[in-house]
């Protein structure tokens, strides 16, 4: 399988803190890859580095063999990488449909001048974008929320809308930042099913997650971060048995659970 995303020797410091230190990993096309790690392990920093929201001190990020680490985030999005946020960032005062239509932004071309003069071709583009957004919402079974203000929805629904908005970009690689955060068990199971379906649509998924059940059930590969360093990267079963992972991650978690 082709490597769709390849991260090499990525480093990022915040003052004296090495948030991400020399991390390398890759995501193969059609895979679900998860990055896990205890709080403060540098997962979100790594995500922001990959998606262009932070610039690395050193190292490279290759998206389909193209170096993207120096590109602004919106250019990376145009190259086929969409992402969600740990703290959902839906657009307030806009309907769910409008939120999803913003996701279609890069697949339209009406600029300031054609839109200002209301040129006829912009109408058909607008109709097309609306139809595509609604089709996608139907596939995710949220078309009934189309006219509701997105930020007034229930938490679980908002997560689904955010996922839908990211999918509306028609990405090749989808980055999900803690997609199950704040979801109850039933919603988490639904989210897991949804992520598998997204992979089956042909979209490669990289996710950062806390919820082990979600990660271990659906991921093809799991990388483990601890204090900014990668300590394991393998299929889920092997990672679960890795003694170092058990010590730094599962061990701590188990101790807290009791």
């Amino acid at each position: 399988m082709e490597r769709l995303l390849e991260v090499r020797n990525l480093c990022r410091r915040f003052g004296g803190l090495k948030a991400v230190e020399n991390v390398s990993f890759s995501v193969k096309e059609g895979q679900i890859k998860a990055v896990i790690g205890p709080n403060g392990a540098g997962k979100t920093t790594l995500f922001n580095l990959v998606s262009g929201f932070l610039k690395p001190d050193s190292g490279t990020v290759l998206l389909d063999r193209l170096a993207v680490q120096d590109l602004p985030s919106y250019s990376i999005a145009r190259k086929g990488m969409a992402r969600t946020f740990q703290h959902m960032k839906l657009f307030p005062k806009m309907s769910t449909l409008e939120n999803v239509m913003v996701g279609r932004h890069i697949h339209g071309r009406a600029g300031f001048v054609p839109s200002f003069f209301n040129l006829p071709w912009t109408w058909s583009e607008e109709r097309r974008m609306r139809r595509e957004a609604l089709d996608l919402m139907t596939r995710l079974d949220i078309e009934n929320l189309a006219e509701t203000e997105a930020t007034s929805l229930a938490y679980g629904q908002q997560r689904m809308v955010e996922l839908c908005r990211a999918l509306a970009c028609s990405p090749r690689l989808l980055l999900l930042d803690e997609p199950a955060a704040g979801l109850n068990m039933r919603e988490t199971a639904e989210m897991a099913k949804m992520i598998s379906r997204i992979r089956d649509m042909g979209i490669t998924v990289l996710l950062v997650e806390h919820d082990m059940s979600l990660v271990m059930n659906i991921s093809d590969e799991v990388a483990v971060l601890c204090y900014g360093q990668k300590i394991a990267d393998d299929v889920p079963l092997a990672v679960q048995k890795n003694p170092e992972v058990v010590r730094v991650y599962l061990g701590e978690e188990n101790a807290q659970d009791s």
């Binding site: 946020f85 307030p92 003069f117 209301n118 970009c169």
Partner: peptide, 29 residues
């Protein structure tokens, strides 16, 4: 003209920037 602008792809992008600039950038805006 402005009414047609704010109801277009551009208007949506502007409101998106207003509401959540990070998310707007993540959408390729």
């Amino acid at each position: 003209g402005l009414l047609s602008l704010v109801n277009s792809r551009i208007g949506r992008a502007l409101r998106a920037i207003h509401g959540a600039e990070d998310a707007a950038r993540a959408m390729g805006i």
